[in-house]
């Protein structure tokens, strides 16, 4: 999971100055290094938030690689990376949906007897986290 940090490198929380080397660092790297901390996430131990953070990371890796593959359809390395992220994303979404509620519109988990699609906070709302920080 740490290797996703490369994708967030140019806009990691806390590094406020504009980075002149951004042009290079936003290109998809197929060999991401392991460094840095989680970005954009609450520092509390809320496991729903942490899992959603991972879903965001895997999904973004796929969003970025999808566009790369659109113009580099023969890049086997990128294709393998896309499939790897796809598996991780699916597992994370299933785990989230089984414990905390729906993420995708075409899957209703067996974990609840009621309609949960519009239950709880919506993505644009300020999250009421259980930690004291927020």
């Amino acid at each position: 999971m740490n290797n996703m940090n490369d994708y967030y490198q140019p806009y990691r929380r806390g590094s406020q100055s504009m980075n002149p080397s951004m042009n290079q660092s936003v290109n998809p790297s197929m060999n991401p290094s392991m460094n840095g901390s989680m970005s954009g996430s609450c520092s509390c131990s809320n496991s729903a938030d942490k899992l959603m953070d991972m879903i965001d990371r895997y999904s973004f890796a796929m969003d970025d690689t999808r566009l790369f593959l659109d113009t580099h359809p023969d890049c086997m390395e990128a294709l393998a990376f896309f499939r790897k992220m796809q598996k991780l994303r699916e597992d994370a979404i299933h785990e989230y949906e089984d414990h905390y509620g729906p993420v995708t519109a075409y899957r209703c988990s067996d974990a609840s007897d009621s309609w949960m699609w519009n239950a709880g906070d919506l993505p644009w709302q300020i999250k009421r986290c259980s930690c004291k920080e927020v």
Binding site: G40, S41, C42, M52, D53, I55, D56, S59, F60, D63, G101, P102, V103, T104, A105, Y106, W117, L122, P123, W124, I126, K127, V134
Partner: peptide
Amino acid sequence: WQYEKRTQYPIKIKK
């Protein structure tokens, strides 16, 4: 299109 219940990148503005 299908909607996913998340923003593409997390947004948590406190102020």
